[in-house]
Nucleic acid binder design. Sequence first.
DNA 1: TGATATATTGAATTTAAATTCAATGAACTT
DNA 2: AAGTTCATTGAATTTAAATTCAATATATCA
Lengths: 197, 197
Amino acid sequence: MPTRDEQKEQRRQLIIFKALELFAKKGYSDTKIGDIAKAADMSVGLMFHYFESKEQLYEELVRMGVEGTNQPMEMNFSNPLDYFTGFLKVMLGYAKEQPWVFYMFVLMAQARRSDGIPAHIKELAMSVNQIEQSAEIIAAGQQYGYFREGDPYALSFAFWSSVQGVMEQIAVTPEMLSGEKELPRAQWIIDIIRGAK
Amino acid sequence: MPTRDEQKEQRRQLIIFKALELFAKKGYSDTKIGDIAKAADMSVGLMFHYFESKEQLYEELVRMGVEGTNQPMEMNFSNPLDYFTGFLKVMLGYAKEQPWVFYMFVLMAQARRSDGIPAHIKELAMSVNQIEQSAEIIAAGQQYGYFREGDPYALSFAFWSSVQGVMEQIAVTPEMLSGEKELPRAQWIIDIIRGAK
DNA sequence: TGATATATTGAATTTAAATTCAATGAACTT
DNA sequence: AAGTTCATTGAATTTAAATTCAATATATCA
């Protein structure tokens, strides 16, 4: 049987994952501590035994997100387009199988964009801003014809904003996650930056 | 000089437009009545002289959005792709010049998606759901090669979710609205449904 | 086992935001 | 110009949600 400390850690993990899902689906402000408590099947008061505040719980999630993002996907790409394709395929695959990865992406994107999120957490989330980084990749790749013409920052902005839009909409559309409806294909979104051939 | 009734109507309009901008930028829950009051330069109490509640103010905006959307753009399109291109060009153009049209699009999309919005308003907003309608246009157009292959609903879903993502990100990025940074181009987003040629 | 520490609850308390209200001043009406 | 109605404010009140707390149960441990 697990020790008390292990129990506690498991309980924390349970809260973390339930909260992740709710925050991703509903956003920070619309997710009530009571919602999380119910999802984790415990009293509201007990939530505060595990986390000192809603804010701190959210911050812990964002920290996880930052760390996860900083571990670069350890794959080799034959060309820079595959970087984007690979990312999208992974994310769309996880949407059904391991939704937490997918929820984490949505949460991080929201944390950067939403108002109502404490400033210091927003900054934390901003530290992994794909738009800036991808703009450089795109600028470099354009010289070899991997990407369409156009302002690299605007292209990157269009790509990542679209990705966020799609992921967020998937998150709130149960038919997508259950598989009753077909998911968008990575290639479709990639064509924003690849352009017509 | 304007009559008292005209004054009142103008004041209402002012509130409406300030609220539209704030709701679009911050979302329903994160927009406080106090924020709107400050933007319209009046006391919080006075807001309730003009609107009976935050909810009712929001509902009025959604009604405006529904009506606006139901007046179909009176343009002739030589092919169905132009329908989407035309829409995007208008919306991106308005982002800088007449942002209220643009904010209205963002608000309507949020109203459909967000939690925390009263159910009856959500339904109202749902009554103009581009995804369903565009799926039919896409299905029809695919037979003539206007759109890429693939499940029409998923294509429509990808397109409109992307558009929402882009518009929402523009709304919260002042450099975009002020013109310091280039906006995404309509063609880029269209390629989601048009595909590589 | 008895003593101590941790987990859990449900009932306060606090806080922030929405909403109501009584009072005041400005504008319209006759 | 007196009387009535509307606009406006700032100060209550209400409400919903976060947070704290005292009390109880359960587990650990000497």
